Computed example of a mutant assay.
Amino acid sequence: MHSSTRRILLAAGALLALPALAQNYPDKPITFIVPFAAGSATDQLARALGQAVTTETKQSVVVENKPGANAFIGAQAAAKAPKDGYTVLITTNTTHAANEHLFKTLPYDPVKDFEPVTLLSKGGQILVVNNDLPVKSVQDLVKLAKAQPGKLSFGYGSSSSRIAGELFKQMTGSYIVGIPYRSNPPAVTDLIGGQIHFMITDMATGLPQAKAGKVKALAVSTSKRTPLAPELPTISEAGVKGYDMGFWFAAYVPAGTPAPVVARLNEILVKANRQQSVANFYAQNGFETLASTPEELRKFQAGESDKWKKIIGAAGIQKE
Rank of each mutant, 00 (worst) to 15 (best):
F168Q: 14
G157F: 01
Y181M: 11
I196A: 05
A164T: 01
Y156F: 12
A164S: 09
D190N: 10
I163K: 03
S158Y: 00
A187S: 07
I163S: 04
I179R: 13
P186Y: 05
D190S: 12
I179C: 13
Q170K: 15
Y175R: 13
L191N: 03
I179P: 07
F168S: 03
I163D: 09
N184C: 08
G157S: 03
R162N: 10
Q170C: 13
S174G: 08
T172C: 06
G165V: 08
G157I: 00
G194T: 04
S161D: 02
T172I: 11
I179L: 10
F168I: 02
P186E: 03
V177M: 12
G165K: 04
E166C: 02
Y175N: 14
Y181T: 02
G165D: 06
R182T: 13
S183K: 01
G157Q: 01
K169H: 09
M171K: 14
D190Y: 06
V177E: 13
T172Q: 10
T189K: 15
L191T: 03
Y175A: 15
G157N: 01
I163Q: 06
P185W: 08
R182D: 15
S158F: 00
Y156A: 00
S158V: 00
G178L: 09
S183E: 07
I196T: 03
S160F: 11
Y156G: 00
T172D: 12
S159H: 04
G155C: 01
I176D: 06
K169G: 03
D190H: 10
T172F: 08
F168A: 08
I163C: 04
I192F: 10
G178P: 15
S161W: 05
G165H: 00
G194N: 04
S159C: 10
Q170A: 15
G194P: 04
Y156Q: 04
T189G: 09
S161N: 02
P185T: 05
A187K: 08
I163V: 08
S158C: 01
Y175W: 13
T172H: 07
R162F: 15
Y181C: 01
S158G: 00
I176V: 14
D190F: 06
R182H: 09
A187R: 14
N184S: 14
D190Q: 13
I176R: 13
G155H: 03
G194Q: 02
I179T: 12
